[in-house]
Simulated scan of single mutants.
Amino acid sequence: MSLPSSPLRRPRLLIVGCGDVGMRVLKLLASRWQVFALTSSAERFAALRDAGALPLLGNLDEPATLSRLAGLAEHVLHMAPPASVGATDERSRHLLQALALRKAPRSLIYVSTTGVYGDCGGARFDETRATAPATERGQRRVDAEQQLRLFARRFGTRVSLLRVPGIYAPDRPGGHPRERLLSGAPVLRREDDVYTNHIHADDLARACVAALFHALPQRAVHVCDDTELLMGDYFDLAAELCGLARPPRLSRAEAAAQMSPVRLSFMSESRRLANVRLKRELRLKLRYPTVREGLV
Rank of each mutant, 00 (worst) to 15 (best):
P82G: 00
A42W: 07
T39G: 09
L150P: 04
C208K: 09
A87R: 15
E74K: 15
R154K: 15
R190Q: 05
L77P: 06
R91Q: 11
G184C: 11
L284F: 06
A64E: 14
S268D: 12
V85C: 08
R49C: 06
P105A: 13
D89N: 06
L284W: 05
E191Y: 01
G174P: 14
L99D: 06
P63E: 08
L29V: 15
R32A: 15
D89H: 02
F151W: 09
D233Q: 12
L66M: 10
K285P: 00
Q34T: 08
L38H: 03
R172G: 00
N197E: 07
F235N: 05
P217M: 12
L264I: 01
S84P: 11
F155V: 01
V111F: 10
E228N: 10
S67M: 09
A132C: 15
E240Q: 14
V291T: 06
M259N: 02
R287P: 02
E269Y: 07
V194M: 05
E228M: 12
A30E: 14
P170C: 11
P105E: 14
V111D: 04
E43L: 03
P105R: 12
C242S: 15
A123C: 04
T114K: 05
R24K: 15
T114D: 00
T65L: 02
L3W: 09
R283G: 10
T88D: 04
S84L: 14
R149N: 10
L284D: 04
R219H: 14
Q147L: 13
T227I: 14
V296D: 08
D126N: 14
P165Q: 02
V262P: 03
A47K: 02
R141P: 03
R129K: 04
A37H: 05
A274N: 09
D126V: 13
L13G: 03
P247K: 01
V223T: 10
R280M: 04
R102N: 07
K285E: 15
A51D: 00
T227C: 13
V194L: 07
H200W: 09
P248D: 00
L66C: 01
Q258C: 13
A274T: 04
R102W: 08
A256F: 03
A42E: 13
S112G: 02
G17V: 14
A80Q: 06
R24V: 14
T227Y: 15
A83N: 14
T128M: 11
A51K: 05
Y110L: 02
F45S: 08
Q97D: 11
H214D: 14
A51Y: 04
R172W: 13
V221G: 13
E191L: 06
R277C: 03
A245I: 07
S260E: 10
G175V: 13
H78M: 00
T131E: 12
R277D: 01
D225A: 08
G232D: 02
R10Y: 10
S268E: 11
L182I: 14
N275D: 10
C18A: 04
V111N: 04
K27R: 15
R263T: 08
G184R: 11
V76T: 13
G86H: 15
P165G: 05
A73V: 00
P7G: 10
R292V: 05
S41P: 00
T114E: 03
M79V: 01
E293D: 12
A144Y: 00
T39Y: 03
K103P: 07
K27F: 12
A185H: 13
T113Y: 09
R32N: 15
G122T: 11
